[in-house]
Design a protein around this nucleic acid. Sequence first.
DNA 1: GCACATTCAATGTATGTACATATATTTGCA
DNA 2: TGCAAATATATGTACATACATTGAATGTGC
Lengths: 149, 149
Amino acid sequence: MKIEEEIKQPTFKDNYQKALINLVFTAGWLQQQQSSLFKSHSLTLPQFNILRILRGQHPKPATVNLLIDRMLDKTSNASRIVDKLEVKQLVTRTVCPSNRRAVDICITEAGLTLLNQLDPVLEHQRNGLQNLTDEEAAHLSDLLDKIRN
Amino acid sequence: MKIEEEIKQPTFKDNYQKALINLVFTAGWLQQQQSSLFKSHSLTLPQFNILRILRGQHPKPATVNLLIDRMLDKTSNASRIVDKLEVKQLVTRTVCPSNRRAVDICITEAGLTLLNQLDPVLEHQRNGLQNLTDEEAAHLSDLLDKIRN
DNA sequence: GCACATTCAATGTATGTACATATATTTGCA
DNA sequence: TGCAAATATATGTACATACATTGAATGTGC
């Protein structure tokens, strides 16, 4: 469905306004698609993303700062998302021995197992962009880089 | 800055994953840019978007259902966003005479004045996509439509 | 060695998102 | 008519976002 129909706005001021609205709408649409994949495992999208970063570090620990650096949403509160993951015993939190201000966060075996279960689901969906060709996906990424200069 | 640098991830599995992450990241980046424009007027982005829809209807009233239909984020709670706008006296809420289940929501003069103040700011920014050409913006929008099929 | 700024994480508050449920009203049909 | 289903909105709860503030630990300059 074209964006005009999705939000029932027949015309836009110009192509810039149309692309902006389409961009925000489509990103939300994709995030909702992804969220639904995790719901049955009681994981939210931000929780999943944090876990994935931790797996990338594994077996090295990560700090909260490192998580923020790598998160898509820089302003969100990594500390509290880690709280939730800790309660579910998917991560551990220990004070860093070499710098007691920092906290070492590690993914647990349970966390790794959960992610491994989720991988094939995501893979099968080709990350939700299955309607694009490889070239189109690359071109899209270039346009987005250009937006942010 | 390329997306690889933004989130400090040197490589991606494929162009699909890269485009997906870039899409979500860029949409968040744009929304934060916009939010900062409203902050000095104590308006949040969802509140602004609701106000803009109401201005489009003016002087006809809108219902909560109409707002949800036109909102970018369909699952958000329009009712509570209208609450906030009502407290600020930017909108009015009256029970619809012809259907007492529904609520007629109208933008007030104060709301219209506020939007008019904000318009030039947004216009000047070309909606945040000033780095794209008109053709690129149109092409981006087409790619996004294609993602959602 | 000590005052002071900086860094790192946690916390507080307001708002928004996601989803389930509640309440009132209207519609439709047996 | 009467009553179940559908509709329109509001409310409850858990989680996340945005941003300011706090508090402990560390680094720096003197």
